[in-house]
Amino acid sequence: MTFLVGENGSGKSTLVEAIAVAAGFNAEGGSRSFRFSTRASESTLGGALRVGRAPGRELSSFFLRAESFYNVATEIEALDLVDAYGGVSPHERSHGQSFLDLLNHRFRPGGLYLLDEPEAALSVTGCMAALARIHELARQGSQFIVATHSPILLAVPRARILEIGDDGRLHTVSYDDALPVVTMRAFLADPGHRVRDLLRP
């Protein structure tokens, strides 16, 4: 379990996307067999990375890119793969439900899963359900690389958290020192005060 955290624009999503492209995934998401393209917007970093994987290491794999999952859902329908995603088209479910369907039905033990901000569609309880499923799959031999802003997802036991600092470098941090956790705790400790500071002219 490896989590990438950092402010918007720090490069965590770009890094996950680049790893996915270097590992042979479609830049917009999906499995390695997905080859559709809606609009090429990926960085060139993926072409400069080399990803080493042992042959036969993965029994399953998927790249979830929250911002383009609608396009992936359309491709799932076009390829008639709905049964592998719980039997209901992702377009027929809420955004959050379709993400959880993906985790519960498409993700399997022994897989490689690259997730870019999966919390984008999830409620607080949805994030907790995702945490439990990710932890279960990790215990069953799956590897995850996740870019996130969610303090809940970061709480997966034994996860490695890498924070991209202002200098652009990766630093290993503890859960308690991770930026999303520190920021959320500070806000929840005194929301009224924080809001007054934000709204002060």
Rank of each mutant, 00 (worst) to 15 (best):
A66C: 13
D197R: 15
H91Q: 14
R108Y: 04
L131D: 04
G24L: 02
A18L: 10
R93S: 14
T74W: 03
L131W: 07
L112Q: 03
G110Q: 07
R57M: 12
F187K: 07
L59D: 05
H95A: 14
S89I: 00
V146D: 02
S60F: 07
T38S: 14
S13V: 02
F69S: 06
L59N: 08
I152A: 03
H95L: 14
G52F: 13
I76R: 01
H105R: 01
M1G: 06
A120E: 07
G30Q: 07
L153R: 08
V124F: 03
E42V: 10
S33D: 12
R65E: 04
G86Q: 01
I76F: 05
R106E: 10
F3I: 12
H171C: 12
G24T: 00
A54K: 15
D80G: 11
S98R: 13
A54W: 00
S31I: 01
S37P: 02
V88C: 09
A20T: 02
D167N: 05
T148A: 05
A186F: 05
S13Y: 00
E92G: 15
A189D: 09
A54I: 08
V181C: 00
A73F: 05
T172N: 06
R185K: 14
L137G: 03
G86N: 12
L103I: 04
L199E: 07
S142R: 00
S94G: 11
S60R: 15
L45E: 03
G24C: 01
V182K: 13
R53F: 06
L162D: 05
R133W: 00
E17P: 05
V173I: 04
M128W: 01
L131E: 04
S98N: 11
Y85G: 03
K12Q: 06
F34C: 10
R50I: 10
I145P: 06
N26F: 10
R39E: 14
A186L: 05
F34I: 13
T183M: 11
V21F: 11
G111K: 02
L103D: 01
M1T: 08
T183K: 10
S43C: 10
S31W: 00
V182R: 11
A54C: 01
I19Q: 08
F36H: 13
R196C: 08
V146R: 07
Q97T: 13
I19L: 13
P55G: 14
L137A: 03
R53A: 03
E17H: 05
P201R: 12
T14E: 02
S41Q: 10
S98M: 09
R133P: 04
L4K: 05
D176I: 12
E58I: 10
D80R: 15
T44Q: 07
G87M: 09
G192R: 10
L49S: 06
L15R: 06
T2C: 05
F69T: 13
L137C: 04
S123A: 06
Y85S: 03
H149P: 09
V82M: 08
S142Y: 01
P201L: 15
V156N: 00
E7L: 12
G11N: 06
V124A: 07
R50S: 08
E77N: 15
